[in-house]
Design a protein around this nucleic acid. Structure first.
Lengths: 214, 214, 214, 214
DNA sequence: GATGAATGAGGATTCATTCAT
DNA sequence: CATGAATGAATCCTCATTCAT
């Protein structure tokens, strides 16, 4: 589309090969996404995806070796969407900050719609499972690292296991996303952020933080 | 067959129909469970289940209308296994009490193995999804009710949304189960219980409760 | 099986399971043979074979894992048909004896019709190729052994390499069969036998042999 | 190439259309040959041939109507390679002469590699079969003619059917080639020539021929 | 002429379900 | 009731051939 805008009148309306191929590939990806989300991965056939994208069955196999590869392509960039974002605690209102972070991140995720496909596939595709698991570990490590830093500053509860807290954060966030995806209703990230902050900070610490810049 | 040979004349020669049928039905259910858990629901065929149960393919269809119905039967009794148990707060050590409750419940769940099947099926079977959702709502309601009672007694945080707390409890518990099911490693329910109790009780309340009966 | 013993005349004309299965298997084999011979192996589909045998596609796969296995079953008993029979030299008229042997053997082979399929398949199926090759080696060894015995008795040419003679016999016989199979015309085995005997025996030896019992 | 040599400097450095086309055609033929020989005819695709020749799929179809036609073009010049060469009997050592003829001819054939393709194709392509058959008939006629000439000179066995002898020669030679092609090992053409000559000449005739020029 | 993406019919194979025995 | 052979629709995937660029 954009290549058209600045074309002068009379120019040859040529859409480069590669670009058209890319368009078709994208159309297939998009059709795959839509159908996976609406019918489930297993119940979607390559033929259907091709038909939905307006191409022949064989064309599907030019761009993807099979259904699974299409899914992988769909997921590979989006893996971060499925994972909890790393919270940032050094604000004068961590609750509000976290809530807005969750909200923003949730939007990206739900736009992809892939949340509905992941559980179905993860249970059968051990490679994908490993990939997600590894990514999750990374997120856990980063969150844990962040918690340790504020722990050292004496901002957190003393008696909670930080690894468990980090895990709980991930779980609450991902479950919030999942809930939203499955129910279709908005989740109140404000309240979730509040609960998470309670797991991290004693109330008086939060209060003090708020005073800081007030 | 062998149970007939050495029957004495005059003995009651007869395993009641219903009972034999019940045995067969149970064998099929058990075979279904085992195969669903090991190979996945979609990749298990009715024929395989029948073969594993030692009956003919056709017999499968005498007892179940199809694979899905067998799964439903499998799940219907066990649905509570998948859900968070209702915590009981009125103890002098809610943390320990909750931890042991979670542990006990987790054992039942993992013995069934069905946790591995649920995600695969939920994403495609909206009826089952509704059923689980409804059950979850029930659990949520009961937990919320419990929280309200202790809230009224002034035992909980004042500023947290109880519904969100109830939801968080469910999420943490189910995620713990899931983690355990998928990783195969034991989860430290002690620490999870601690985190949950922190979401519910201010530390000083817990401390007081402990003193009570000591 | 056992259900036959005590059947009285007039009883239900029951065709036992196993036998019917065998019938169906045979029907498939026969249909496979016919189609392979008429259309070529590669150009015959499992579906066609099933249709020709009057069964559903799926039934084909109950009896054979695939087209190739059906072919193997077709060939496995018949492998001797494709190979040269072992000539017997100790007769007073080896030419006549050989001619009749070749004729008899040729009839068995052509009844099977499989000669037309073998070349197509051998070139692509290395396993089958090995099998045939091994069988051929056996035949060669036996013919060579027979030649050596008459060589020791001074009945053969002195200057010919017996291994080459054995190979030539095999080649002439198999080619005769092949010619007959492909052209559809009868081959004059009398003359072939004569040529073969000329490769083996000096004419005067043959003449002497004839006198012996005359 | 030769048309280049005499181009003068300064001439337009131009490869004539037809020539380029011819080059491409040859590249396709050669690629076809290589792939047919290595993967078999049926398992080679037009796309592969084109890719191997470094041209686009569509280009393949500009030069050949389909895979079969390419094969035909490949075979048509080479058909003599597959057939027995015509022996020349008028030498003082027909055995040695024949042996060397077979060897030379075998080399040409094996260099082409096409022997491996022929059986696969002949069984399915009746047109090609006819072509080969016709060529074979020609060879048979020529060999038979040669045999008749030496028969009339009283050089051959009196009692053998010359047509059968001619056929036997063809068969032994082609089988020798086939054996060499399939086993990869050299065949002893010396011994084959000896056997063939025994079918043609009584030993004393050969002996006499040898004396002639000695 | 050359390209190679697109086509879609067709082959191999599986499996939920039925039904004659 | 039990059996398991039979069914055939449905899936995955390939490849000869065309055609817009």
């Amino acid at each position: 589309m954009s290549e058209r805008e600045d074309r002068l009148a009379g120019e040859f309306p040529f859409i480069p090969r590669q670009e058209r191929a890319q368009q078709k590939r994208n159309a297939l990806l998009e059709s795959g996404r839509i159908l996976f989300v609406s019918k489930g991965y297993e119940h979607t056939t390559a033929k259907e995806i091709a038909a939905h994208a307006g191409v022949a069955t064989g064309t599907f196999y030019r761009y993807f070796s099979d259904k699974r590869q299409l899914l992988m392509s769909l997921l590979e960039d989006k893996i971060d969407y499925f994972l909890a974002p790393e919270p940032y605690w050094f604000s004068n209102d961590p609750e509000a900050f976290l809530a807005s972070l969750l909200e923003t991140h949730a939007n990206r995720l739900h736009r992809s719609g892939l949340y509905r496909v992941l559980p179905e596939v993860l249970s059968k595709d051990s490679y994908l499972y490993e990939v997600v698991q590894a990514a999750r570990k990374g997120v856990h490590a980063r969150i844990l690292f962040g918690l340790k830093k504020i722990y050292e500053k004496g901002l957190t509860w003393k008696d909670l296991d930080l690894a468990t807290v980090a895990w709980s954060i991930i779980v609450l966030v991902e479950s919030g996303y999942e809930k939203e995806a499955q129910s279709g209703k908005r989740v109140n990230y404000q309240e979730i952020a509040k609960v998470i902050c309670r797991m991290v900070f004693p109330p008086e610490v939060l209060a003090k933080l708020r005073e800081c810049t007030e």
